[in-house]
Amino acid sequence: MKVRTYIALLSVGSLLGASLLIGLGWWGFASLSSATRELEKETQRTGELSVEYKDVEAFLSTTRSIMVSMEVYPENYEGLFGVTRDELREAEIQLNVIASKYGQNYSEKELKHLVEDLAEVKGAVLKLEEFAQQLGKLKDNQKPPADFWVKRNKAKSQYEEIRDKLKQSVNNLEILSEQFRQKSEQEVLTKWKDLKSREETNGFFLLLGVLLYLGLISFLGFSTYRSFASPIRRLEMAAVDSIDHNKPFLLAESGPYEIRSLTRRLQGLIIGLEETVERRTAELKERTIQLQKEIRQRMELETQLVHAQKMEAVGQLASGIAHEINSPSQ
């Protein structure tokens, strides 16, 4: 494998790790944003239900005030029916607001019962008011018609019957409203828990991604050291041992293609250099031996020459002596 292949793999691995982190971060951000939006929507809906709950409570309070007034105060109490009529009109307005704004939260049948029961209660109250007015018009010691109390008691019974129906409808509306409120609060709590759960999950996966990325970077760093730095270091040590300490260059080829090629070339260069040095050393030794031999031969020739010169001198001396002997001087 060549160096550029290693570099390409390292780059791709780093980019994949970075992409993984970016992907995890974006996924976590999108998930939290979605959960936050859902929580905001549910909170807004809870606020709207809170307003609805207040409107419903106002209607319930007004309606129950009508019933309490009719039960507590006597029918000849001054202003009773005037206050009751005002409260009935207010209850009708409040019921219309509930039906128009929050009709989707309640069944049409339930709202219809409320409208009908409230109208019947209004009619029954008006009848009772007529009887009270008739009593008020009687002069002292004047008695009402013979069937007055029968009709009045019948109207009272009808009112109580209709009142009980309205009370039941009002109670049902209160139960539904309370259920909506509790359900909304529960949904907000659920959304909040879901948001916290997503935060914890995203934090875990993000931490896991960071650890994986660090592991990948560590692996790539170790692979880089093992593939580049370690072979180059071993090559340097082998070259130093071979050149400076005259040790044989013994190094197995490892690493990328370029480092293996450099190892082969350096090994061939050092081995060739060693062979050249050995060859030239042998030649030098051979020449040294030959020169020593020539020196010895020259020394022997010089010795022989000196001996010959000595012998020549001795011969001349002997010839002179012999000549003197043979020819004595006069």
Score class of each variant (00 low, 15 high):
residue 99 A to Y: 01
residue 192 W to E: 13
residue 19 S to D: 03
residue 208 L to E: 04
residue 292 Q to S: 13
residue 73 Y to Q: 10
residue 22 I to F: 11
residue 43 T to Q: 12
residue 110 E to T: 10
residue 285 K to H: 09
residue 68 V to K: 02
residue 167 K to E: 06
residue 115 V to L: 02
residue 139 K to C: 00
residue 192 W to Q: 13
residue 315 G to V: 04
residue 118 L to Q: 04
residue 316 Q to Y: 03
residue 10 L to E: 01
residue 85 R to S: 13
residue 75 E to F: 08
residue 280 R to W: 05
residue 317 L to R: 09
residue 287 R to C: 00
residue 141 N to V: 01
residue 230 S to V: 04
residue 293 K to I: 03
residue 8 A to D: 06
residue 304 Q to D: 13
residue 205 F to M: 10
residue 284 L to S: 10
residue 288 T to R: 03
residue 130 E to A: 06
residue 294 E to I: 09
residue 91 A to W: 03
residue 58 A to H: 07
residue 99 A to E: 07
residue 227 S to P: 00
residue 310 K to V: 04
residue 325 I to L: 14
residue 240 V to S: 07
residue 70 M to V: 02
residue 297 Q to H: 09
residue 39 L to M: 13
residue 280 R to S: 03
residue 143 K to G: 00
residue 283 E to I: 07
residue 297 Q to C: 01
residue 108 E to M: 08
residue 312 E to M: 12
residue 102 Y to Q: 02
residue 174 E to R: 14
residue 314 V to A: 11
residue 96 N to P: 00
residue 67 M to Y: 04
residue 107 S to A: 10
residue 329 S to C: 01
residue 18 A to I: 13
residue 206 L to N: 05
residue 140 D to L: 07
residue 304 Q to N: 11
residue 44 Q to V: 12
residue 237 M to D: 08
residue 135 L to T: 00
residue 31 S to W: 01
residue 192 W to D: 12
residue 51 V to R: 15
residue 216 L to A: 09
residue 145 P to A: 12
residue 143 K to F: 02
residue 58 A to P: 00
residue 244 D to P: 03
residue 78 E to F: 11
residue 104 Q to L: 11
residue 12 V to S: 09
residue 94 Q to W: 01
residue 53 Y to H: 12
residue 205 F to C: 03
residue 104 Q to F: 10
residue 167 K to S: 13
residue 190 T to H: 13
residue 45 R to S: 14
residue 2 K to R: 07
residue 98 I to T: 06
residue 98 I to M: 05
residue 295 I to H: 10
residue 271 I to M: 06
residue 314 V to L: 14
residue 299 M to P: 00
residue 148 F to T: 01
residue 116 E to W: 02
residue 64 R to D: 04
residue 67 M to R: 05
residue 14 S to A: 12
residue 208 L to G: 15
residue 95 L to N: 01
residue 177 S to Q: 15
residue 255 G to V: 05
residue 182 Q to N: 14
residue 286 E to G: 09
residue 189 L to I: 04
residue 268 G to C: 03
residue 321 I to H: 06
residue 53 Y to V: 02
residue 219 F to Y: 15
residue 201 T to G: 06
residue 60 L to Q: 10
residue 128 L to I: 07
residue 150 V to C: 00
residue 257 Y to P: 00
residue 310 K to R: 14
residue 175 I to G: 03
residue 278 E to Q: 12
residue 35 A to G: 09
residue 43 T to D: 08
residue 114 L to H: 07
residue 3 V to D: 07
residue 160 E to Y: 14
residue 322 A to N: 12
residue 60 L to T: 07
residue 92 E to P: 00
residue 168 Q to N: 11
residue 108 E to H: 05
residue 303 T to I: 10
residue 11 S to R: 00
residue 50 S to G: 15
residue 43 T to V: 14
residue 168 Q to G: 08
residue 281 T to R: 01
residue 242 S to T: 12
residue 228 F to E: 04
residue 268 G to A: 15
residue 328 P to C: 06
residue 253 E to G: 06
